[in-house]
């Protein structure tokens, strides 16, 4: 459920053109006595960026502060590279840049003692930024474009994505639980579909615009989950393929053109929605 440039038929730039990497090597780091250091400007997704660091911290002690700076709506992902790739520190965040808030990052990106432990080699510090510019589309989750980076995110953030999804599902289950007690009120053919755009807007608003979460991976998870629902609605082959490797519950919702449609009897589905174990 993870597609590529070829089947991305949206207008504008291709996904690969919206993603870019920049590596900044700071030599003789121990001799730097400036409060802040700026990288050269680099371009990703049609926007210009630079990295700003405070080697001795920005309003904090004993930390390296690191920020990505620009002047338009985007998302950012900087990392400091350790000589041992497994030890490289990755921090991921989403941010909507605007005129008065053109920089975003971490004041306490890393403790200074940690910086010296493998990150500074031959008096050189390497900082790598991976930037993904997000198309302004509020009614669709978006994916993480870079495969390697995405895998790194899964390693670091999967548990927190689980917590976020669990919290969101359980909150809604609680409300639905009260409804199911009133069985007489519901009949099979009423209130069983809604435009996908209407619901996906709510999804994106919950997870991105209201900033309840600031990780690319949540949006990426929703993106692939939605693709899965679409595939299952279009062809049963996709589902059969999935079942080869792992038992997955039948979808409770299918997609018919631009509508989400409940896939079975309303009360049965409601029970499932409330009682089925968390994935």
């Amino acid at each position: 459920y993870w597609d590529t440039d070829e089947n991305d038929n949206e207008s504008g730039k291709k996904p690969s053109e919206l993603f870019g990497k920049f590596t900044w090597r700071i030599e003789k780091i121990s001799q730097v006595n400036k409060r802040e250091l700026r990288s050269i400007v680099f371009e990703v997704g049609g926007y210009k960026w630079y990295i700003l660091i405070y080697p001795q911290g920005c309003d904090v002690h004993n930390h390296l502060s690191l920020f990505l700076c620009v002047a338009n709506p985007d998302k950012l992902r900087p990392a400091v590279v350790n000589k041992d790739p497994k030890k490289s520190k990755y921090s991921d965040t989403l941010h909507w840049f605007w005129k008065k808030e053109h920089d975003w990052g971490w004041k306490k990106f890393m403790e200074l003692s940690q910086v010296l432990d493998g990150f500074v080699v031959n008096d050189t510090l390497v900082i790598k930024a991976q930037v993904q510019v997000i198309r302004e589309k509020k009614s669709r989750p978006f994916r993480c474009f870079d495969c390697t980076y995405r895998r790194e995110l899964v390693r670091v953030y999967l548990t927190s994505v689980e917590q976020i999804c669990r919290h969101s599902i359980e909150e809604r289950r609680g409300k639905l639980g009260k409804l199911i007690e009133d069985k007489v009120r519901w009949s099979r053919n009423h209130l069983s579909r809604e435009k996908t755009e209407v619901i996906l807007k709510e999804v994106v608003k919950q997870f991105f615009i209201e900033k309840e979460v600031a990780s690319t991976l949540v949006m990426d998870s929703l993106y692939s989950g939605l693709n899965m629902l679409e595939s299952q609605s279009i062809s049963k082959k996709g589902r059969a393929k999935l079942l080869d490797t792992e038992e997955t519950p039948d979808p409770m919702v299918s997609i018919d053109k631009d509508m989400f449609v409940l896939a079975d009897d309303m009360l049965l589905l409601l029970e499932r929605a409330i009682l089925e174990p968390f994935p």
């Binding site: 989750p141 639905l176 929703l222 993106y223 490797t245 997955t248 409770m252 994935p279």
Partner: peptide, 28 residues
């Protein structure tokens, strides 16, 4: 590789369940 695939499936399934529960919460 199996662990990566398992994580991928888990991520997709989590996303799918979230979208589904939003459909329910909206419709009801």
């Amino acid at each position: 590789k199996n662990a990566i695939e398992r994580d991928e499936r888990r991520l997709t399934e989590l996303g799918r369940r979230c979208v589904e529960i939003f459909v329910f919460a909206h419709i009801f």
